[in-house]
């Protein structure tokens, strides 16, 4: 940090003044988040979603405390039925099913959160820049995004995952993010385009703000709800994709997750032995977690819909 030259003091003062003016804007994101949560909570469907998601997050965080056994401990009897010691029985390899379900929550919540976050970051960066800049690169990005939208995602994920053999959770997140960002980018781009010609953006342009500042400090905060919505959408897709890839046996089959449980259930002939809980429980958890995110999105839709309609009328 250099000491400001006395001649520059004027500009410096302006910058300080601007920093101070920004200060409430810096704290207001918390306020925005709080208000967003309150709005989401006011929609009954979304309230159910928040409660469900909260349950799974608690399960994921406190899995080691809640689970009765170590999920990879295979020292129990094989393919046991329900009992007081094993509420959901044991797997064909002799592991406790309940402990695996509880620990599986950690994997799904983690993958959903990280992959959703990364996809959203890419979607926000590309969608906003692409929506704000009017140049020839816009057409190129348009083409690339449309390409990623029409190429079937799961086959692409399967092919990439087959080359990067047994890469585990990191590989799965990578594959899901690569194929999952395009939808959010397109939605955010159209919203940016409709906000681009609003008065507050014109005002910012005239006051000499850089394009980066306009896009990320002026336009971005106006799309919070849409961004939150695309995060939940990406997270849902990530959780379903992760389960699908692991069910096919791509990825590390020693990971404790709901997808891997289903993989082992089919490969150990749980269908024939009649241990329906091995099929039923992991899939139900995946569905409930994915549903909880979709339900929350009903509340987020309520936040963003009036604005979307304004954009559609232009």
């Amino acid at each position: 940090m250099t000491v400001p030259d006395p001649a520059d003091r004027g500009t410096h003062a302006v910058m300080v003044a601007r920093k101070q003016a920004d200060a409430p804007a810096m704290t207001s994101p918390l306020g925005v988040v709080w208000r967003a949560v309150a709005t989401i909570w006011s929609v009954p469907k979304a309230r159910v979603g928040v409660a469900l998601l909260g349950f799974f997050v608690l399960l994921a965080v406190f899995a080691p405390l809640i689970a009765p056994y170590d999920p990879s401990d295979n020292g129990f009897g094989r393919s046991e039925d329900f009992s007081a010691a094993h509420w959901m029985g044991t797997t064909a390899a002799g592991q406790d099913v309940l402990s695996q379900i509880i620990h599986g929550a950690s994997t799904s919540v983690f993958v959903g959160f990280v992959a959703g976050l990364l996809s959203t970051i890419i979607a926000v960066t590309i969608g906003l820049t692409w929506g704000y800049l009017r140049s020839i690169t816009g057409d190129v990005i348009n083409f690339v995004v449309n390409l990623f939208l029409v190429i079937p995602a799961l086959p692409l994920m399967i092919v990439i995952a087959a080359y990067l053999q047994n890469g585990g959770i990191g590989m799965i997140i990578f594959v899901v993010v690569i194929t999952g960002w395009a939808w959010g980018a397109r939605v955010l781009r159209s919203q940016t385009q409709s906000l681009r010609s609003r008065d507050f953006v014109t005002a910012a342009v005239f006051s000499g703000d850089s394009p980066a500042r306009i896009v990320f400090r002026e336009i971005l905060p106006n799309m919070t709800s849409l961004i939150v919505g695309s995060f939940f959408g990406a997270a849902t897709a990530a959780i379903l994709a992760e389960a699908g890839l692991e069910f096919l046996g791509l990825g590390d089959s020693t990971t404790i997750s709901w997808g891997t449980m289903l993989f082992w259930a089919q490969n150990s002939n749980a269908l024939l032995t009649g241990q329906w809980i091995l099929l039923f429980a992991p899939g139900l958890c995946i569905s409930l977690l994915a549903t909880s995110l979709s339900l929350i999105n009903f509340g987020v839709d309520g936040l963003s819909n009036p604005r979307l309609r304004e954009g559609a009328n232009r």
Binding site: T236, L240, A243, G244, F247, L262, A265, Q266, L271, W276, L279, F280, P282, G283, I286, S287, L288, A290, T291, S294, L295
Partner: peptide, 19 residues
């Protein structure tokens, strides 16, 4: 519809196959 679209395809398949 919302609940059913959250079902993983392979899970619905496994349940139908089993039951």
């Amino acid at each position: 519809g919302t609940f059913a679209s959250a079902f993983p395809y392979f899970w619905t398949a496994l349940l139908l196959l089993f039951f």
